[in-house]
């Protein structure tokens, strides 16, 4: 479903290369975890796949359902079924969660030929989704992420994922800043949402999240490349040994990290 081929990307304003040839394939029904130290390019990879304007792809390709999405705007990628749960969800004062979600839902629905929902139908529809992440309904009338605690913001991302029903979800450090109870709620939500027809990419720093969401594959990213891939047991190995033992793999071809 998602094929990333030899992806190179730079920060547009500075010309610094962050992604240095990433290869990754995600199929339907799979959960992938991407782990790695700070600054390894994990979050950049998620943003580039979602189409963030600060980055420019200089080489390689991103295929989604067999088609290159490099020329698509971020909203068009979202219409295709791509979802990014942000590491730092953005505040939008004065715009309620309901307003945003209904607009999002209907825009995506329209682009995919699904039926749009009027405000009352939409209200019914999201009630069930609220329970999934144990959100108080009051929360719907609050401004998007404005004045939310760190944990609430992360839960809101998963709530949006539940409402929008993406085909591929990239979850960028969704576990950071969550206490143990919130982590469990968020992880349960993701597990319930994931099925045979969608893919999930978890970007995480710690193995902790993977106790709750069991990945099919674990990848280690260092220096803008995936340097090692394996099954879920790789995560435990990393937890035990850290990333140092893999650093040397990032400098093959004499290229420094």
């Amino acid at each position: 479903m998602l094929e990333i081929k030899n992806l190179h990307a730079i920060v547009e304003s500075e010309g610094i290369e962050i992604l240095k040839g990433v290869n990754l394939t995600v199929n339907k029904g799979e959960i992938h975890a991407i782990m790695g130290p700070n600054g390894s390019g994990k979050s950049t990879l998620a943003k580039v796949v979602a189409g963030h304007p600060n980055y420019e792809v200089t080489d390689g390709d991103i295929l989604f359902n067999g088609e290159s999405i490099l020329e698509l705007d971020p909203d068009e990628r979202a219409h295709a079924g791509l979802f990014l749960a942000f590491q730092y969800p953005v505040e939008v004062p004065g715009v309620t969660n309901t307003t945003l979600l209904r607009e999002s839902y209907n825009t995506i629905a329209a682009s995919r030929g699904r039926e749009e929902l009027d405000p009352l139908e939409f209200d019914d529809y999201i009630q069930g989704k609220l329970e999934l992440v144990e959100m108080n309904p009051d929360f719907l009338e609050r401004s998007v992420n404005t004045g939310f605690s760190g944990g609430e913001k992360k839960r809101n991302e998963i709530f949006q994922m539940a409402v929008l029903q993406p085909v591929l979800s990239l979850l960028d450090e969704t576990d950071s800043g969550l206490d143990i109870d919130a982590l469990r709620i968020v992880a349960d939500g993701i597990n319930k949402l994931h099925g045979d027809d969608d893919g999930v990419v978890l970007i995480t720093h710690y193995q902790r999240l993977l106790n709750y969401i069991v990945p099919d594959y674990v990848h280690v990213m260092i220096g803008g490349k995936i340097v090692k891939s394996g099954g879920k047991e790789l995560a435990f190995e990393l937890e035990e040994k850290g990333y140092d033992w893999l650093e040397s793999l990032a400098t093959v071809n004499g290229e420094a990290k």
């Binding site: 705007d73 979202a78 942000f86 939008v92 945003l100 825009t107 949006q160």
Partner: peptide, 24 residues
């Protein structure tokens, strides 16, 4: 840019995103 990107990632066009932000 981050606000606009966030809303675009939720499927909303750039112009609608700006309009939402200003209106809010």
């Amino acid at each position: 840019e981050e606000q606009i990107f966030y809303l675009q990632q939720r499927g909303i066009s750039e112009q609608d995103a700006i309009s939402l932000i200003v209106n809010g």
